[in-house]
Computed example of a mutant assay.
Amino acid sequence: MKKLFQGQVRRYTDDAALPDSFWVEIETKYSGKRRYYHNLHHLENLLEQLSEVKLSIKDWDVTLFALFYHDLVYNPARRDNEEKSARMAGERLKSINFPKDGVDKCRNMILATKGHADASDNDTNLFTDADLSILGCAHDQYMEYARQVREEYHIYPDMLYKPGRKKVLQYFLSMDRIFKTNHFYDKFEAQARENLSIELKSL
């Protein structure tokens, strides 16, 4: 991933120091000691999922930058992580003279991960679907993800965490479709609903 990201940055800037400094920032943020799920492994999985639909993505460069920056800021105690991540992504992309419409789209894609609602832009739907792909993985893997999320929210006791987690699970289960695009719907929808329902009953 390091080479991929740095190669992307070099396409837009002649400043030899920026690819390294940008990557160090990303690696440091995603390697925080409390990053049990929202870490570099999450980025690797997201890249794997998006690579499967690369030919359907119109703006691959924008999507890649959204991938690397979408969880750059992650503090379970705050509700503005997406906004802060989007802002930092915009600042970094502007500094390498990335096209303005691309900067705006990247920020919007990151903001879309807050609610994972259906968007008018297909790239955004593919991106947010890939971000949710963990919901539809094998049940054992899903429960490990659920455990990792609980670790990230360790500051909250069960009496506070469980109601909040239930609300999240019910939000997804109430959707007509969790996955907006046919590719991810066909691949993950049924298993995701099963996983979410089982976790909900266990809380």
Rank of each mutant, 00 (worst) to 15 (best):
L4F: 02
L4M: 05
G7N: 13
Q8P: 00
V9W: 03
V9G: 05
R10P: 01
V24P: 01
K29W: 02
S31T: 02
R34L: 10
R35C: 01
R35Q: 00
Y37M: 08
L40V: 00
H41M: 13
H42S: 04
H42P: 07
L43Q: 00
N45L: 02
L46R: 02
L46Y: 02
L50V: 02
E52L: 04
V53W: 03
K58R: 11
W60R: 04
D61R: 00
D61E: 08
V62I: 04
L64G: 01
F65M: 01
F65E: 02
L67E: 00
H70A: 08
H70D: 04
L72C: 08
Y74T: 04
N75C: 11
S85V: 03
G90H: 09
E91L: 15
L93S: 12
L93R: 05
I96W: 04
F98Q: 03
G102E: 06
K105C: 00
C106W: 00
I110A: 07
L111T: 02
L111Q: 03
L111G: 03
H116V: 09
H116C: 05
N122F: 03
N125I: 06
L126R: 07
F127E: 01
A130T: 08
H139G: 11
H139S: 15
H139C: 14
M143E: 14
Y145V: 06
Q148P: 08
E151P: 01
H154W: 06
I155L: 10
D158N: 14
M159I: 15
Y161C: 13
P163W: 13
K166R: 14
F172M: 08
S174V: 05
S174C: 06
M175E: 15
M175A: 15
F179S: 06
T181K: 07
T181P: 10
H183Q: 09
Y185I: 05
D186V: 13
F188K: 11
A190V: 14
Q191S: 13
A192Y: 06
A192R: 07
N195Y: 11
L196P: 10
S197G: 15
I198P: 15
L200C: 09
K201I: 14
S202M: 10
L203A: 11
